[in-house]
Amino acid sequence: MGPSRRNLRSHHHASSSSSAAINEPFRPAFDVLDVDHDGRISRNDLQSFYHRFCHEVDDDTIGSMMTAADTNKDGFVEYEEFARMLEIAVCGGCGGGVMKEVFRVMNKHDGDGKLSHKDLKSFMEWAGIAVTDQDIDDMIALGGGGDRSDGVSFDGFMQILNLEP
């Protein structure tokens, strides 16, 4: 079974309502960044995400991310703010910069500009999303790659997410 538009949320965030997945298309990404699972993204969540998954990030970068997304200025990014930021980014408001950063973080193993089978599998496992090797192969195929050795470009990644640039 491939990833074709199914909800890839981890088991503790699963919803029995399929309309939730349709109405909240960015929920899986939000849930990954909401490290403490309190329903909102804080500075600490972002710092934990970067520290645990890829690398250290300076406070100025975290501050910039929070400032850009926290439109109500309460110190947290709620799902609606997060979704609005991604919709703007995907629709060209900032050239897809947010999604390019997500892609860069996922491309941690060799930094070659393509998400390999290993990159995708590693990220999904880290995020607590159970996938098989076949699921990853299906993602690569969906993203325009031929097989697991081809990997997925940024444009292919956007196709996987159904957010073509």
Rank of each mutant, 00 (worst) to 15 (best):
Q159M: 07
Q159I: 09
F157N: 14
A141I: 08
T71F: 00
E80C: 12
L86Y: 02
G92I: 05
Q134K: 14
S16M: 09
E81G: 07
R43P: 02
D110Q: 08
A127V: 05
G97K: 14
S10R: 15
Q159E: 12
Y50H: 09
V98G: 07
D155G: 12
P165F: 01
G143P: 04
D36F: 04
E80H: 14
I136M: 02
G39C: 10
I160Q: 04
S18P: 04
D135G: 09
W126S: 15
Y79N: 03
G145I: 04
P28F: 01
A83Y: 00
K114H: 12
K73G: 06
A29D: 04
I136S: 06
N44E: 09
G95T: 11
D147T: 15
D150M: 11
D34M: 08
R43T: 11
N23S: 04
V102F: 01
T67Q: 03
A20W: 00
I129N: 13
E78I: 13
S153L: 09
Y79I: 02
S19I: 10
K100P: 08
M106W: 05
T61W: 00
D133L: 03
P3F: 05
M106L: 14
N107H: 03
S48E: 13
M66F: 02
A127R: 08
A141P: 01
F26N: 07
G143N: 11
A127E: 08
G156N: 10
I88E: 14
D147A: 15
G151W: 01
